[in-house]
Design a protein around this nucleic acid. Structure first.
Length: 303
DNA sequence: ATGTCCCAGTCTCTGGGA
């Protein structure tokens, strides 16, 4: 199974590139974030032409997540119980946009789950946090605590992976220069502790395990030639269960998708998993003998 | 690094978010 995650920064703006990328990479399951698209406006017909089913969760201008699969898409779940919702920021006078008296603050479309070929897959877009101690930062930490509860509930059931834009760089090795991020979000101890709590439940960082010592980034600011200078962060993660980590065959960031005309500011991250140990991979048939020579391929015997 | 891109509404510019 080839599994990918990509913060596309608007699926409508990125549609031509997304379709070309799907046709080229042929992932089996794709987690998308920042689709910035209402669920009923998602370009499902366009991706269906490439063989993908769609499950989308979005309400318009901001956020939005989706799952694409060509290996089945069952038991779709939009959002999760522990999502705290966001009350908005206080006005100058101190009134929240959604006071407590109006009930719980509304949940944003930041998570969608489905079962694809026996694997429980979640696409998540973790709140950005803006700056440390901002209301949005506390929302981010509460949201990650809710995600931890979701993982704790679902992880024991079988193969599980949560993929997406976590807006947290797990370690200092995941940013181009730790000094550049002092006083900023994405690197603070509480954010990293929230991520670590997911690992304590048993989730494994598939890309970092495959490349323990590599400089690997998935996001580069549009400004100041950051991509060209490879000044980025690794904040797009695939966190898989023990069973999936054992099936890991390859993991990489598709930097090519960050180049050229009108890219997202994030690159897709792709992992290839071997078949499940008990999966039926079909009869074992030796390949035809067809050695390539300087004069071209030898003709196969006629049937 | 504060250099760009995206969205919707105020709609051919602006403000907010990242």
């Amino acid at each position: 199974m080839r599994l990918a995650t990509w913060n596309v920064n608007s699926v409508k703006a990125r549609l031509p590139r997304l379709l070309d990328w799907l046709a080229d990479k042929r992932p089996d399951v794709v987690c998308l974030q920042e689709t910035k698209c209402a669920a009923d406006a998602f370009p499902a017909a366009e991706v269906a032409e490439l063989g993908y089913e769609t499950a989308a969760h979005g309400d318009g201008r901001w956020n939005g997540v989706a799952l694409l699969s060509r290996v089945g898409l069952d038991a779709v779940t939009r959002g999760f119980d522990g999502d705290p919702g966001y009350a908005g920021e206080p006005e100058e006078g101190g009134e929240a946009l959604f006071p407590v008296s109006d009930g719980p603050p509304p949940k944003e479309p930041r998570a969608i789950g489905a079962t694809c070929a026996g694997v429980r897959v979640w696409s998540v877009y973790v709140p950005n946090g803006r700056v440390p101690d901002h209301p949005h930062y506390h929302y981010k930490l509460q949201w990650l605590a809710g995600l931890r509860d979701l993982v704790a509930a679902e992880l024991p059931a079988g193969p599980f992976v949560v993929c997406g834009d976590f807006n947290v760089a797990p370690t200092d090795a995941d940013v181009f220069d730790p000094a550049a991020y002092v006083g900023q979000t994405h690197v603070t101890p509480p954010e990293r502790a929230a991520l670590a709590s997911l690992h304590e439940l048993g989730l494994r960082d598939l890309v970092r395990e495959r490349w323990p010592d590599r400089r690997v980034f998935t996001y580069w600011d549009y400004r100041a030639g950051m991509f060209h200078k490879d000044l980025g962060m690794r904040i797009d993660l695939l966190l898989g269960s023990e069973e999936l980590a054992g099936r890991l065959k390859a993991a990489w960031v598709d930097r090519h998708a960050r180049k050229g005309t009108l890219p997202s500011d994030h690159a897709p991250v792709i992992v290839d998993l071997d078949e499940a140990p008990d999966g039926d991979i079909g009869p074992v048939v030796p390949p035809p003998s067809n050695p390539v020579t300087k004069r071209g391929a030898k003709k196969l015997p006629q049937a």
